[in-house]
Design a binder for these strands. Sequence first.
DNA 1: AACTCGAACAACCGCCTAACT
DNA 2: GAGTTAGGCGGTTGTTCGAGT
Length: 292
Amino acid sequence: MGCRTCEKPKVNYRKGLWSPEEDQKLRDYILKHGHSCWSAVPIKAGLQRNGKSCRLRWINYLRPGLKRGIFSQEEEEIVINLQARLGNKWSQIAMHLPGRTDNEVKNYWNSYLKKKVINAQGSDPHGSATKSLEPTNKNLLTQKETNNQIPSSQSLEPPESSTADSGLSMKHSMEFGSFEGAIHHHFPEVLIADWLSVDQVIEQGSGIFGGATSTPWNSSNSNVDEVLRPGSSEVVGHSNSDFLGGYGGTGIDGELQAQFEPVSPIPGDAFFDLFTMGKIPGSLDMNHEVIF
DNA sequence: AACTCGAACAACCGCCTAACT
DNA sequence: GAGTTAGGCGGTTGTTCGAGT
């Protein structure tokens, strides 16, 4: 990983909240050049941030395809199930929530779901706990009750197995309980960028976006509604971190390029069959958020 | 209207691992 | 093989905002 090409002067890195101008600089730079070396990104992008901060900002907030806003009931169920099974492996949990980042999942758990689960556990496990939950979370409680019957020592995988597998594989995750049902029937809608790292997109270069300067989200007059989407299950062959997390840094083979197309047709292909997602979200707002 | 408090969110910090020299 | 560095991840802290008093 050592990047000797990134000679950089010591600077007083800026901290704190990112300004819109900083966001724009980072977004523009990465969309144009990618991020082969994060430590070089702030320098070349004209930012007084460290590479780590830029990486976090990109992954958590600027990366195209992120879904912001409240978690759906189905997403909650997935988080609760996977947290019970994997523990605080937020990156792995986030892999199963397209459009969600590990940071977002973690925050949501710490600020909301954890209390909800604890509250539910403290209540009558056979139903009275619903009094403390919103009516919309009825299924969640049912799911939790199932989990509570499994001792944590048994429900948690050994760390080796969970990580050596590049995270819980989708096949593996399908194996437990009603989580399958949650995915099968209610898996959140997803944008293409959730399944493909920006490097992959950018390195495909003009083939996908018709040039680095005319990406759907950085062009002021671009049609932001025209999101891209995968066209086949081939994408699944890539590592989880690449196709889900958007963290990946390596290129993709040529065939992937052909797998993406403007969203207009929604074929019922293998990719969607695998995850049983319904449809592509209707639109993106200017901050690349999914509008439901 | 001012204040307090808690929830939610954003970002940083520290550690670990892997890649590179 | 050792040292260095970047990337990745989870824990924690800081900030913002809205509800309640």
